[in-house]
């Protein structure tokens, strides 16, 4: 783990409050701002430039991230989450627990929602990754993003990009038939602010538009 990654861990210099404060400033903002100019998420115009990795056993990883090809030499320990946030500067995807227990890091890999904190970048080699930054169509928000705004589906925003990525997949999977089904299939996304009722409203509303 690099020094930079270490300093991202709650308790390592960053207080919980500080972390949440920072996250709330970024969450919806990052999701919206960077999607309105997709290219800005990457340092260079072609394949994304990433800082050189250190360690003995580096592996070549090729990904398509929100439709853009990315090539990197990765430390096999890097998770997809840290790779997106720290190497590709796509900070819309959030780190909550880093242990598979909260859903904040949810992204789509080859069209399926997964937890990027438990996915190794090396194991994702060759796959198509979609993050919150890849949802909007230019300046037009994805119907699920719009529905979360319209229905107050968040407070601090720390869980929101994960909720939205999960919700988009849920509708595609055909799991939006009833409130109970939405609740069950959104249960992998914890919201500390307990925006749950409004999240269900948002998912219901968006699912009608998405069909």
């Amino acid at each position: 783990m690099t020094e930079r990654e270490r300093s991202e861990e709650p308790g390592d210099g960053l207080s919980r409050r500080g972390l949440l404060g920072r996250a709330s400033a970024m969450a919806v903002g990052a999701a919206v701002v960077s999607t309105s100019s997709p290219g800005a998420a990457f340092a260079s115009d072609t394949a994304a430039a990433v800082p050189p990795a250190v360690g003995e056993h580096l592996v070549d990883v090729r990904l398509s991230v929100n439709g853009r090809p990315v090539r990197l030499r990765a430390d096999p320990r890097w998770t997809l989450l840290d790779t997106l946030r720290e190497r590709l500067e796509l900070t819309g995807t959030k780190k909550g627990c880093d242990r598979g227990q909260c859903g904040a890091c949810t992204v789509h890999v080859d069209g399926r929602r997964v937890l990027s904190c438990l996915t190794l970048a090396a194991a994702a080699d060759g796959s198509q990754v979609r993050t919150i930054e890849g949802l909007a169509d230019g300046d037009e928000l994805h119907p699920m993003q719009q529905a979360f705004i319209d229905h107050d589906g968040f407070q601090c925003g720390a869980c929101t990009s994960g909720q939205i990525m999960s919700a988009v997949a849920l509708v595609d999977e055909g799991h939006a038939a009833s409130d109970d089904e939405i609740r069950e299939y959104m249960s992998g996304n914890i919201c500390r602010c307990s925006a749950y009722p409004f999240i269900v409203d948002a998912v219901k509303a968006a699912s009608k538009v998405m069909r």
Binding site: R113, V114, L115, S166, A169, L170, S187
Partner: peptide, 9 residues
């Protein structure tokens, strides 16, 4: 078991 994301993985 687990969650939809975890079950996909």
């Amino acid at each position: 078991g687990a969650s939809p994301q975890l079950r996909n993985m």
